[in-house]
Simulated assay, not measured.
Amino acid sequence: MTFWDKAYDTPSYKYGTQPNAFLRAQIHRLAPAGRVLLPGDGEGRNGVWLAAQGYGVLSVDGSAVGLAKARALAQQRGVTLTIQQADLAQWQPEPASFDAVVLTYVHLPSALRTSVHRRLAAALRPGGWMIIEAFHPLQLGYTSGGPKDVDMLYTLDALRSDFAGLLREELAWDGVVPLDEGPGHQGPAHVVRWLAQSAF
């Protein structure tokens, strides 16, 4: 089993079954019934919630265990979720085919991060939104979750650099928020929140 297969191989949902708070706060920006890509969607909490709001959702993850739990959650909630198992390091989404890309705590090593981010930005249609929440390097001082390797933690400057020339920044913030996302994310956390739009 992979690291994430082991992490998800429990009866409970590691990060809960409710959507991320930043995603919930920004969803009003999306046109109704749009198509949303969720790379690294894990056990499906965000994808299932978006599907319940009427969006067409593609949840992509490398963990077969996580995706099986996403299917179960979608069935329980009575929604349709399209699922694909793939390694984001190599996976190539169809260009200009999504109205939004949602990255919630998808942490990649810096050697991969920029190329993956740029491929995901290219998947946005004109006017499409990139919605990101991730842990900041200062998260190393907290016990509420996230990688323990600073190379896999994100700053606003790194995100701006990754998407330079592709997306227009709408919102950029970093600071401490309270997390209550299943057993995996509990307590105060230092995060980055970044929202940007593809050029029309």
Score class of each variant (00 low, 15 high):
54 G>D: 15
65 V>Y: 01
87 D>G: 06
150 V>N: 05
25 A>I: 07
185 H>W: 05
177 V>F: 11
63 S>D: 06
16 G>Y: 02
105 Y>P: 00
122 A>V: 02
135 F>R: 15
78 G>W: 10
192 V>M: 08
2 T>N: 15
117 H>L: 02
159 L>D: 00
33 A>C: 06
183 P>A: 13
149 D>R: 13
163 F>I: 01
111 A>Y: 00
182 G>L: 15
168 R>H: 10
136 H>Y: 15
35 R>N: 14
196 A>V: 06
122 A>T: 06
158 A>Q: 11
163 F>H: 05
71 R>Y: 00
170 E>F: 08
183 P>Y: 15
167 L>D: 01
192 V>N: 09
88 L>W: 05
29 R>Y: 08
132 I>S: 10
116 V>T: 01
21 A>M: 03
26 Q>F: 03
79 V>C: 08
131 I>W: 12
80 T>R: 11
7 A>W: 12
101 V>T: 02
152 M>V: 03
178 P>Q: 15
4 W>D: 05
50 L>Q: 12
151 D>V: 03
36 V>Q: 07
145 G>S: 11
120 L>G: 00
54 G>W: 14
167 L>I: 03
165 G>M: 01
33 A>I: 01
193 R>Q: 15
125 R>H: 04
45 R>K: 11
54 G>A: 14
186 Q>H: 08
136 H>V: 14
181 E>K: 08
119 R>I: 03
85 Q>Y: 04
46 N>L: 12
178 P>I: 12
